[in-house]
Amino acid sequence: MFVMNTWYVACSLADLDALGDKPLGRTICNEKMAFFRDGSGKVVAVEDFCPHRGAPMSLGKVCKGQLRCGYHGLEMDGTGKAVSMPGQRVRGFPAVKSYAVVERYGFVWVWPGDQSKADVAQMPVFSFFDDPAWAYGGGLYHVKADYRLMIDNLMDLTHETYVHATSIGQPEIDETPCDTKVDGDKVVLQRHMEGIQAPPFWRMAMQANGLDPEAKVDRWQICRFTPPSHIMIDVGVALQGHGGFDAPADKKAYSVVVDFITPETETSHWYHWGMARNFKPDDAALTDSIRKGQGTIFGEDMEMLERQQANLLRWPERKLLMLNIDSGGVQARRVIDRFLAQEQQEAS
């Protein structure tokens, strides 16, 4: 179900730090974890379980870099080892599980599987996060649906015509065929639309970038899946006839939709969404406006996916039908299945 020996986004650094002296409890790939900063200020993660009476450590408090259980006051360090408890001797307690953690791109990344295999060199690279020519804004949704349904959704953007009709959807998406290619463990789906009117969201972006929002444009959608469940989508519009995706910066409005999809359980996931753009990066008001608009768009997806999941649970025996527009999601699932099979083989 879940690829375990890999890196997932657990939370944003901002969300963790906003809690102050409270730890952050989160379930990832059915592993219950508690995140906090240790005495050196480094983010660490331990199993969300107190070895004394089994209480969740995430209900406790961080005291001088130690995580204190909110039930009886047992304290543990970032390795999961009990270090103290008022009036008791607990240093002989076996340590609970701890997890490899990396802080990068404004997020906390965690490796939920075999900790001996955790490899920072396997961290994905996204250069735009560190590039001052780009701005980023995003958020988080907790979605009560199989994480693979979100992958299907993002690797098939024909749904925009219907689910997002008032923002980014338009009939030309349906009318333009897509092309899907597999490159090793990566899946790339592309759609290029030429000589069309931009939909409302992109008219707003064009105007913000000093372009005529009523002008005809060439529009692109390039969905890039990488395991375990990251999807970057190159999206944008360029004034017609200037090269589309390859148009010069002053002729287009271009962004990357950032999708970090982290499984929680078999029927729920954490969806860290955002948009990175390479125009007007210093315009904080524009960043906030795009973030709010994008949040509304993804909220529409969330309702659809949760109701889809409810239907699938109600009728588990029904086979879902496949069309050519499903090729991106189908290929992404094949990559996931290959990783799962490899982990199962190594475990046996």
Rank of each mutant, 00 (worst) to 15 (best):
A310K: 12
N5G: 12
F107N: 07
P124Q: 09
E75S: 09
V187D: 09
V335T: 08
D234K: 10
Q122M: 10
Q88W: 05
I231C: 13
D301F: 03
N324L: 01
R219G: 00
P171Y: 08
G169T: 12
L286A: 09
D183H: 10
Q115E: 11
D218H: 15
G210F: 14
V44G: 10
P248M: 09
P94Q: 06
I222F: 14
M204E: 11
S58V: 12
S116P: 00
D288V: 06
H242N: 11
L13P: 08
P171K: 00
D17M: 09
K319D: 10
E317H: 08
G243N: 13
K186F: 06
K181R: 14
F36H: 02
C11N: 15
W273L: 07
T262I: 09
G87C: 10
L313H: 13
E160V: 08
V9W: 00
P248S: 08
K97G: 07
L24H: 05
D38H: 03
D185N: 15
R318V: 15
H192F: 15
M232G: 06
Y136W: 15
P281L: 01
A165L: 13
G274I: 01
P316N: 06
K42Q: 15
L19H: 14
Q308Y: 07
K97Q: 07
T287C: 03
M155R: 06
D152V: 01
V143Y: 05
C223M: 13
F260I: 05
E160Q: 14
K181M: 14
L323T: 15
E103S: 13
V90A: 07
L154D: 10
P263H: 04
A347W: 00
G137W: 02
V125S: 00
E214K: 06
R318Y: 09
G295E: 11
R104H: 05
P228F: 04
Q207P: 07
Q240P: 05
V335L: 00
A347D: 04
T176D: 09
W270I: 04
R219E: 14
L239V: 15
K61A: 03
G80D: 11
P228H: 07
L59Y: 03
D77C: 15
Y141N: 15
S348G: 10
M1C: 08
D282C: 11
M85R: 14
R68F: 00
Q207I: 01
E194K: 11
C50Q: 09
G137T: 11
L286H: 09
P281T: 06
D119I: 08
T180E: 02
D246Q: 02
S58M: 02
F93E: 11
V217K: 11
N324P: 12
E31V: 07
D17G: 02
